[in-house]
């Protein structure tokens, strides 16, 4: 087995009296799609914010590609190859699709013609090829979600962290999005960490899943193991009392 891409060692994040993430450890292997699930308020988003550098962990250590990245700024972590999207569609609403994706490629590609190629290739991959001159805010919801992935993927990260990429998509759009995520993994050898509420989707695309509950890790394993784990079933469905 190769060295893990990202190692989170006992990370915790406290907000005043609330321990949003508590002693959470996990590893992400290169090439896999890892899912992070849990009921509302379980600490999924906080975990995302901690590993992407938007929050500093209260305690714990993060190692990415063998380097300690604990406490680095979000921009610095991104430049090392860990790029995230946001739950509520992260767009530059007043700018064109082209400029949105260009901003994503700006730091990763050094010359202008290379950037243009990167923009076109990324737009085509995410089904935005014909819409380069459209204003981002005017796109339908489904395409806005694709664009927010395009911005992040234009940087060609090694680890792409998707925060609820499928929320609000209809079933056709969700299928298309899943196909794109699969292509990003297979054709570009990108490792993916994914948070989503849609259990069926997560079960289908993820190689491994970690379950968070009340800020702590409840279970970790293959989709099959998670589906049959009594603790997980209890957390989601209640224990019948």
């Amino acid at each position: 087995m190769t060295a893990p891409l990202l190692v989170a060692q006992a990370i915790s994040r406290r907000f005043g009296g609330i321990l949003a993430v508590n002693d959470f450890s996990f590893e992400i292997q290169p090439g896999e799609v890892m899912g992070l699930i849990g009921p509302n308020g379980a600490g999924k988003s906080t975990t995302f914010n901690v590993i992407s550098g938007f929050y500093k962990p209260t305690t714990g250590k993060l190692t990415f590609l063998g380097e300690d990245i604990t406490g680095l700024s979000a921009a610095a972590i991104s430049r090392r190859g860990l790029v995230r999207t946001f739950q509520h569609g992260s767009l530059l609403r007043e700018m064109t699709v082209h400029d949105n994706i260009l901003i994503g490629a700006l730091r990763a590609v050094r010359d202008n013609s290379g950037r243009e190629m990167r923009v076109r290739e990324t737009a085509a991959l995410l089904g935005l090829g014909g819409l380069l001159h459209a204003t981002a805010g005017s796109l339908p919801h489904g395409l806005q979600r694709m664009l927010s992935i395009a911005i992040a993927f234009a940087a060609r990260p090694k680890l792409l962290c998707l925060d609820e990429p499928l929320t609000g998509l209809n079933s056709t759009e969700a299928v298309a999005a899943l196909e794109v995520i699969g292509r990003i993994r297979d054709e570009y050898e990108t490792t993916i960490l994914l948070v989503d509420h849609n259990m069926r989707v997560v079960m289908r695309i993820c190689d491994r899943i970690a379950v968070l509950n009340y800020g702590q890790k409840l279970a970790e394993g293959t989709p099959e193991e998670i589906r049959n784990n009594p603790d997980v079933i209890r957390a989601y469905l209640g224990d019948g009392e």
Binding site: S52, F54, S73, A74, A75, A76, S78, R79, V83, R84, T85, F86, S90, L91, L92, R93, E94, M95, D99, L102, I103, G104, L106, R107, A108, S148, I151, A152, A154, A155
Partner: peptide, 18 residues
């Protein structure tokens, strides 16, 4: 363009390494 991007949504700009 980066200026305008920051005005639109500075978190996005931060996430792509700027």
């Amino acid at each position: 363009r980066v200026f305008r991007a920051i005005q639109n949504n500075d978190a996005v700009v931060e996430t792509v390494g700027i």
